[in-house]
Design a protein around this nucleic acid. Structure first.
Lengths: 146, 146
DNA sequence: GAGTGTCTTTAGGTTGGGTAATGAGTTACG
DNA sequence: CGTAACTCATTACCCAACCTAAAGACACTC
């Protein structure tokens, strides 16, 4: 572990990161791209889009949520026709969750809505700042999944 | 507004930022530096430390929270002796909120706890990645307050 | 084949916000 | 002036998104 992460710059950065993430999270909760779909539900769909299909338990671990929460989320997504539940081939305790074609369409549509949100946000940041955020995005994601 | 924020790289970055922020936010909620002090309460104390003193309304706007929520948060902080409420000099509707000496001590203590958290986090990131995060922290904060 | 462990689900609770409505105080305007 | 309209804080109530504890179904081990 490098020494430089112990200096006061980094302590300030962590503090700043902490409050910025909490604040942004609160705001994102309201400014959701698709009505009637919570941020976590969106996130689960994104994960499914990347990973193909997974069991509820796997999804819970990936989203850092407890299993009962994921059960409820999956049930909501199923009720909306965005996800399909099939029996697990080897283990009858588990289920396989996969996204429907409808989910794929919805993700595509939400991508365009996200651009609108991004456009309004862009007014407050200059090009360098966006560059910084683009670089930071994958690191933040890694950090979140640590 | 630069064109480059419309390319697919930026769309992906926004998507990635979005889910990373939500996920980190969830985790930060649990991994709080000081027991019995919510992230928002911490954030309010931080704001007070920077700005000296403010009215509940000002705090609500800065934290992007509705006034009733800030009333409750301030009341909790006052009950814990971290904040002092005084009548506003010019306007008897308003109140002035300022931090106590106890709050200052607590912030100092929490800074050291934050270093412990940071240390465990550091194990998962290399030096370049930390560099990226340090650069991104102020931008994220600006974005959050937009 | 009995016991232990694992995956999901059910039931119930907690927390951190929100909206609507009230009360007190200020400002603007006739 | 005085009254109407606005603003600030608060109260009362509500809701969403998580949590923990416990149960039920199945799998593994010995």
């Amino acid at each position: 572990m490098p020494d430089l992460i112990h200096d006061s710059d980094s302590a300030a950065a962590v503090s700043s990161l902490r409050s910025a993430v909490m604040l942004l999270g609160r705001r994102l909760k309201h400014q959701r791209v698709d009505e009637s779909l919570s941020p976590t539900e969106m996130s689960v769909l994104g994960t499914l889009a990347r990973c193909g299909s997974a069991t509820p338990g796997e999804l819970a671990r990936k989203e850092h949520v407890q299993p009962p929460s994921m059960t409820r989320i999956v049930a909501l997504l199923e009720a909306k026709g965005l996800v399909r539940l099939e029996p697990h081939p080897d283990d009858r305790r588990q289920k396989m969750v996969s996204q429907t074609e409808q989910a794929e369409a919805m993700l595509a549509e939400s991508r365009s809505k996200r651009n609108a949100w991004l456009t309004t946000l862009a007014e407050g940041l200059d090009e360098d700042e966006w560059e910084t955020l683009r670089n930071a995005a994958p690191v933040l994601e890694k950090l979140a999944h640590l």
